[in-house]
C-alpha cells in the first residue's frame, strides 16, 4: 500500500509537517491583511478602489514566477523590506518564513474574495436596527457583522490554507528548493521527479496532496453552504 503510514519515511513526514507549518503561518499572517482589504473593498467608498481590487487579485493571474521575482526584489537580501525583516531578527531568505510569505501573497486574493462575499451578504438593515437599539458602530461590528460573516471568514481561511499547500512557482523563485527549510510538498514532488527511480515517493506525496486539498476544499464548501451564501467561492 503506497499510503500505509509505515511506508512514509521520516523525511516525507518532515515534508508534510513543513507544508502544514508553512500553510498555517501563511493563513494566520494573511488573515488580518485579508480582512482589512475585504472590508475596504466591500464597504469602502474611496478613489482607487478599483485599482486596489485589481492589485489584490494580481497574484491570481500573474505568472507565479513573476510574483516570486517581485518578492525577491522587495524582500530579498538587497530589498528594503528584506533588510528590515532581517534586522528585526526575522530573515525570510531561504527560510521557511519566506515560503510562508510567498504562500501568503498567493493566498491573499482567494481569502479576500471569500471574506468580501461574506461581508457583502450581511444585511445592512440589521446593522441599522442594532444602531437604533443603542449599539455603537464598533459594537454593531462585534455583535452583528462579525458573527454573521464568520462562516465566510472561516471558509476564506480554509481556502487560503489549501492554496498555500499547493503553492509552487512563487516559492521556488523566491526562496529556492531547500530540503527541510523551504521544500514543501509540491517542491518535494518536483525534486523527486527530477531523479529516476523515485516514483514511489512522487505517488505517495501526490496522493497526500490530493487528500489534504480535498479536505480543505470540502471544509470551505460546507462553511459556505452553512452560511447560505449565494455566491460560492469555488
Amino acid at each position: 500500500m503506497a499510503l500505509a503510514p509505515n511506508s512514509i519515511s521520516p523525511e516525507e513526514w518532515g515534508i508534510i509537517w513543513l507544508s502544514l507549518k508553512v500553510s498555517a503561518a501563511a493563513m494566520v499572517a494573511t488573515l488580518p491583511v485579508g480582512f482589512a482589504l475585504a472590508w475596504a473593498l466591500a464597504r469602502g467608498r474611496f478613489p482607487g478602489r478599483v485599482l486596489l481590487d485589481g492589485l489584490v487579485h494580481l497574484p491570481l493571474v500573474l505568472p507565479p514566477v513573476v510574483t516570486g521575482w517581485m518578492l525577491l526584489i522587495v524582500f530579498g537580501g538587497q530589498g528594503v523590506a528584506g533588510r528590515w525583516l532581517a534586522a528585526m531578527g526575522m530573515p525570510v531568505m531561504f527560510r521557511w518564513t519566506g515560503a510562508a510569505l510567498a504562500a501568503s501573497v498567493m493566498a491573499l486574493p482567494l481569502m479576500v474574495r471569500a471574506i468580501r462575499l461574506s461581508l457583502e451578504s450581511v444585511d445592512r438593515r440589521l446593522e441599522a436596527a442594532a444602531r437604533t437599539l443603542g449599539a455603537s458602530p464598533m459594537r454593531v461590528f462585534v455583535t452583528i457583522t462579525l458573527p454573521l460573516a464568520l462562516p465566510g471568514v472561516l471558509a476564506g481561511m480554509v481556502l487560503g490554507f489549501a492554496r498555500s499547500l499547493g503553492e509552487f512557482g512563487a516559492t521556488i523563485t523566491f526562496v529556492s528548493n531547500i530540503p527541510g527549510e523551504t521544500q514543501t510538498l509540491p517542491l518535494a514532488i518536483y525534486a523527486a521527479l527530477q531523479v529516476p527511480g523515485q516514483e514511489g515517493i512522487v505517488t505517495r506525496l501526490a496522493l497526500i496532496s490530493v487528500g489534504l486539498s480535498l479536505v480543505a476544499l470540502v471544509a470551505s464548501e460546507v462553511l459556505t453552504r452553512r452560511m447560505g451564501m449565494r455566491a460560492h467561492v469555488l
Binding site: A128, A129, R131, T132, L133, G134, A135, S136
Partner: peptide, 9 residues
C-alpha cells in the same frame, strides 16, 4: 447618533 436617540424603531 442613532444609538443615543432613544428611539424604538
Amino acid at each position: 447618533r442613532p444609538e443615543v436617540r432613544g428611539c424604538g424603531y
